[in-house]
Computed example of a mutant assay.
Amino acid sequence: MFYSASYCSPLGKITLASQQNQLVGLWIEGQKYFGAIVTANIIEKANLPVFNLTKKWLDNYFAGKNQTINQLPLAPNGSPFRQKVWDILCNIPYGEVITYGDIAKQIALQTNQPNMSSQAVGGAVGHNPISIIIPCHRVIGANGNLTGYAGGIDKKIKLLQIEGVDTRNFVLPKKGTAL
C-alpha cells in the first residue's frame, strides 16, 4: 500500500510517497517521471510519522540548514545500477557539486570496469524518485553545464543557491530536454 502527502515549498507543491513507513518518493509538481515508481493506488494520508519527519527535514532544508540524509527512512526503488548511482548522490556534500563523469568514474571503480557511460549515469540521476533529499540537483555536466534536472533548471539553480553554491559561472543549456 502506498500513501501520499503534499508539502508546500518555495519551489511549489511537492508530493511525498511512502510504503511501509519508508519514503519512496518526493516529486516537485511538473517533474518528469512524477510518481513513476508508484504502481498501485495511492491513498492520501498526510499525518504519517514518515511524512511528518520528511516535512520537518524539508522545512529545515528550505531554511538553509544542512540536513543529513540518514535522518530519514529512505527506500528508493530502482535497479542495482540506479541504486549505486543514488548511493553516490547521497554522499555529495551539502553545497558542493560533482559531474556525471565523476559519478561514472566512481561506478567504474566500484564495479571493476575500465569505464562507465556518463549518459547511463545521467539516466539514473534523472530517475531519482526522492529528489532534493537524494541530491540529484548537485550533479552538473562537464565544464559547469547545468543540464539534466527532471524538476527543471530553474529549480536546480534555486536548490543550489539555497545551499550557498555560487551558480554565476555555470552554463545554462540553450536547448535540449533539461530546460
Rank of each mutant, 00 (worst) to 15 (best):
I28Q: 12
L159G: 06
P114C: 01
N143F: 08
A63H: 11
K175A: 05
I28T: 10
S6V: 12
L48E: 12
D166A: 14
M1D: 12
F34L: 13
F2T: 08
N91Q: 14
N47H: 12
Q110R: 05
E96I: 00
P129A: 04
K32I: 06
N112W: 07
G126H: 01
S131G: 06
T39F: 13
N143A: 09
P10E: 08
I153D: 00
A5H: 04
T99D: 11
T147N: 13
L109S: 14
V38P: 05
G151K: 00
Q67N: 15
P93T: 03
G64P: 08
E163T: 03
F34Y: 15
I43V: 12
L72P: 12
T167K: 10
N143S: 05
F170N: 08
T54L: 07
A75K: 11
S18C: 07
G101Y: 09
L53I: 08
D87K: 14
A150F: 06
S18L: 02
K84D: 15
K32L: 13
S118Y: 03
N91D: 14
N115K: 12
Y100P: 05
K158Y: 13
A17H: 11
L48C: 01
I103P: 14
L159I: 11
G12R: 00
L146A: 14
A142S: 13
N70T: 09
I157W: 07
I88R: 05
P93W: 03
L26R: 04
V121D: 09
C136T: 11
G126N: 04
K156H: 13
V171G: 07
L58S: 06
N70R: 09
Y61L: 09
I157T: 10
T15N: 06
A124C: 15
G152Q: 06
A178N: 12
K156V: 13
E44W: 00
P114T: 02
C136K: 06
I69T: 08
N66H: 07
L11Y: 11
V97T: 15
T15H: 05
L53Y: 01
Q161G: 05
V125P: 14
N145V: 03
L109E: 15
A142H: 11
Y94D: 02
Q20Y: 02
G176Q: 13
L109G: 11
Q71F: 07
R82W: 14
N77Y: 06
P80V: 01
F2L: 05
F62V: 10
M116G: 01
P73C: 03
I153V: 07
N169H: 01
G151F: 01
Q119Y: 04
T147C: 12
T111E: 14
K84W: 06
G123K: 08
N70G: 06
L58V: 07
N91H: 14
N52Q: 10
A17T: 11
L26Y: 04
T68C: 09
N112Q: 15
A124M: 06
I42H: 00
E96A: 04
Y3H: 15
N47G: 03
G126K: 00
Q19H: 09
I157V: 15
K13E: 13
I134W: 03
D154Q: 03
S4F: 04
G141R: 10
A142Q: 12
K158D: 05
V171A: 12
S118V: 08
L179R: 11
